[in-house]
């Protein structure tokens, strides 16, 4: 009990401190999740605490992921008039995006002959972390790897998006927002703010749609496809 409170207090304090620093100095582009994780890994090593022990003590935090996923219903409800009006466009964009994300990741991973556990953990990378975690568990991936791959996806997606939008003449706020939400989940949605309120709405909706669609893929044809190619 005391160890559990200690683990959670330490994590929350470190995370909030780094988050405050990141907001104070946006130019440094500090990533609170990555930096807190690295700090904790170092602390655990210094004090000789097994990682599994820390994960066990901090499970109250992990248990919050599921209700947080459910809370994604709130933005869909708030923007329901947009969903109704653009349902077709949202479905086409995220169905194609999710399919392309999975197939291109799978194809490239096979091309580089990655180990099976890396390949499977890579498949959920384009969706927002709570959904990715759920999907990684379902298809037999490693949750820690899936989380890290999701973060890398978000950061790289935001980095390359301006060039892709320019070269391919993707100009409308709706298209840019949806591409960012589909390809780079929550990190992309933050970036969509630069293209206006409409882009943020579409980015958020694309993120939720992609999360649900990709997870459903993960439960249906994906295990069959994985069996086929591995």
């Amino acid at each position: 009990m005391i160890k559990s409170i200690g683990a959670i207090l330490l994590t929350v304090t470190l995370y909030q401190t780094i988050k405050a620093l990141a907001q104070r100095y946006p130019k440094l582009r500090l990533n609170p999740l990555i930096l807190t994780t690295i700090s904790i890994i170092i602390l655990l090593a210094l004090f000789d605490v097994p990682v599994e022990q820390y994960q066990q003590d901090g499970r109250l935090l992990t248990n919050m992921i599921a209700p947080a996923t459910i809370a994604f219903a709130i933005p869909v409800y708030k923007h329901f008039h947009t969903v109704k009006r653009y349902l077709g466009l949202l479905m086409i964009g995220t169905l194609i995006g999710s399919t392309v994300a999975i197939l291109s990741t799978l194809g490239l991973a096979l091309l580089f002959s990655l180990d099976d556990y890396l390949l499977i953990s890579l498949l959920p990378r384009s969706i927002t972390t709570p959904f990715a975690l759920e999907m990684a568990t379902e298809i037999g991936g490693v949750s820690a790897l899936a989380i890290v791959f999701v973060i890398i996806t978000g950061l790289l997606g935001v980095l390359i998006s301006p060039a892709i939008f320019q070269v391919l003449k993707i100009d409308s706020p709706i298209a840019r927002g949806m591409a960012l939400g589909m390809a780079a989940h929550a990190v992309g949605t933050t970036r969509a703010l630069e293209y206006g309120e409409e882009a943020v709405t579409f980015s958020t909706l694309a993120m939720v749609f992609a999360g649900v669609i990709t997870t459903i893929f993960g439960l249906t044809f994906l295990p069959w496809l994985i069996n086929l190619v591995l």
């Binding site: 995370y15 999740l33 994780t37 890994i41 994960q55 935090l61 992990t62 209700p67 947080a68 972390t129």
Partner: peptide, 17 residues
């Protein structure tokens, strides 16, 4: 829950080690 979302992933992410 959504603002603090990243915090909840730390115990899992530490498993990367």
């Amino acid at each position: 829950l959504m603002v603090q979302l990243l915090l909840f992933f730390i115990p899992s992410a530490v498993g990367i080690v």
